[in-house]
C-alpha cells in the first residue's frame, strides 16, 4: 500500500496534482491511499516551501510544480 500525500493550500495546481497522482497510481495498478494536506504547519513539517508538493511514503518527490503523468508514474514507483 502506497501512501500518497498531496501538499497544498487548495490552489488549482494542487487539485490537478491530486488528479495526476490518482491517474498514475491507477495506471500502475498499485494499491494506494491518498491524503490532501492543506494545513500550513503540516505542509511546513515536510520542509516544503512551494506548493503543490507530492509526497510518497513520507518522502517528498516533487515541489512547486505539476509533474506530467509519465513522470508521476516514475515518482510513484
Amino acid at each position: 500500500m502506497k501512501k500518497i500525500q498531496i501538499l497544498g493550500t487548495g490552489c488549482t495546481k494542487c487539485k490537478k496534482l491530486a488528479e495526476v497522482a490518482e491517474a498514475a497510481a491507477q495506471a500502475l495498478g498499485t494499491p494506494y491511499e491518498m491524503e490532501k494536506v492543506t494545513e500550513i504547519a503540516r505542509i511546513m513539517s515536510f520542509g516544503v516551501m512551494s506548493t503543490p508538493a507530492l509526497v510518497v511514503n513520507g518522502v517528498v518527490k516533487s515541489v512547486g510544480r505539476l509533474p506530467s503523468l509519465e513522470e508521476t508514474k516514475i515518482l510513484l514507483s
Binding site: 511546513m44 513539517s45 520542509g47 509526497v55 518522502v59 517528498v60 515541489v63
Partner: peptide
C-alpha cells in the same frame, strides 16, 4: 515554532534535496 525538521525524506534533509528543486 514551526518544525521544518530534517527528517529523512523531507526537503530539509540533505539527501532529498534533488527532489525538492
Amino acid at each position: 515554532a514551526t518544525q521544518t525538521g530534517a527528517v529523512a525524506g523531507t526537503c530539509a534533509s540533505v539527501a532529498n534535496r534533488g527532489n525538492c528543486g
